[in-house]
């Protein structure tokens, strides 16, 4: 199977004045295409840092990150932006939708940046919103949607152009258990249906249960790396 993400001897040290904080220490990780991985661990264990490194939102202090065959750690800002635009989708804890755009426009924005035609954007955004259960709510702005609905829009935006990798940073943290369960179910189905790899960071045991592979982090180190089901 194709390896989508490969981290080798990844280290990240944050410097705060004279103090050095090791956020990640010697992380080695391979993620194969279509996998649904859960990164778990207590706050400060390095989950979000690892996701940010893989997504090229932050740079490692040392080590290698390869995403879909490209060395993320050696790419320029512009190349990283291209990589994120075409190959990586993000879902964040706080939904992070553009408040001045409607649900449909939020989803369309990525396709618009990729240069897709208006007709294509229209068809695909409506289709994906229908797929995530938001049919009829396309023209609502984020403030007019519930938390669960906003997170569905965020997922739709992340997967609309079928990236090879979706990084989700605690996507269920602000949702009630029912909405969280629905969202996870949907993400797994989408992943399977569209052959996308999901790496999800969480504290939530329900998310951990649904993951095919569970990676536990503690103090920036991988302490457990288990395949589940």
């Amino acid at each position: 199977m194709k390896t989508v993400v490969s981290c080798k001897h990844l280290n990240k040290i944050y410097r705060q004045g004279q103090i050095e904080v090791k956020a990640l220490t010697d992380i080695n990780l391979d993620v194969i295409a279509g996998d649904f991985i859960c990164l778990s661990g207590p706050s400060g264990s390095g989950k979000s840092t690892l996701l940010n490194m893989i997504g090229g939102l932050d740079s490692p202090t040392s080590g290698e990150i390869i995403v879909d065959g490209q060395h993320v750690d050696k790419m320029s800002k512009s190349e990283l932006a291209e990589l994120r635009l075409h190959k990586i989708g993000f879902v964040f804890q706080a939904y992070n939708l553009i408040p001045v755009l409607t649900a449909k426009e939020n989803v369309e924005m990525v396709m618009q940046m990729q240069g897709d035609s208006k007709q294509y954007r229209n068809e695909h955004s409506l289709a994906i919103l229908k797929e995530v259960g938001l049919e009829g709510l396309e023209n609502r702005k984020p403030a007019e949607l519930s938390g669960g609905q906003q997170q569905r829009v965020a997922v739709a935006r992340a997967i609309v152009d079928k990236p090879c990798l979706v990084l989700a940073d605690e996507p269920t943290a602000n949702l009630d258990s029912k909405n969280a369960d629905n969202l996870l179910q949907m993400m797994r189905e989408m992943g399977e249906q569209h052959q996308m790899t999901f790496i999800v960071s969480t504290h939530d045991p329900m998310v951990m249960e649904r993951a095919r592979r569970l990676i536990k982090l503690h103090d920036g180190k991988i302490i457990e790396n288990n395949k589940q089901h």
């Binding site: 997504g55 800002k77 932006a81 994120r84 075409h86 993000f90 964040f92 992070n96 990525v110 940046m113």
Partner: peptide, 9 residues
């Protein structure tokens, strides 16, 4: 968010 979606500086 714009940057994480792949929009350039």
């Amino acid at each position: 968010l714009f940057q994480s979606l792949g929009l350039k500086p």
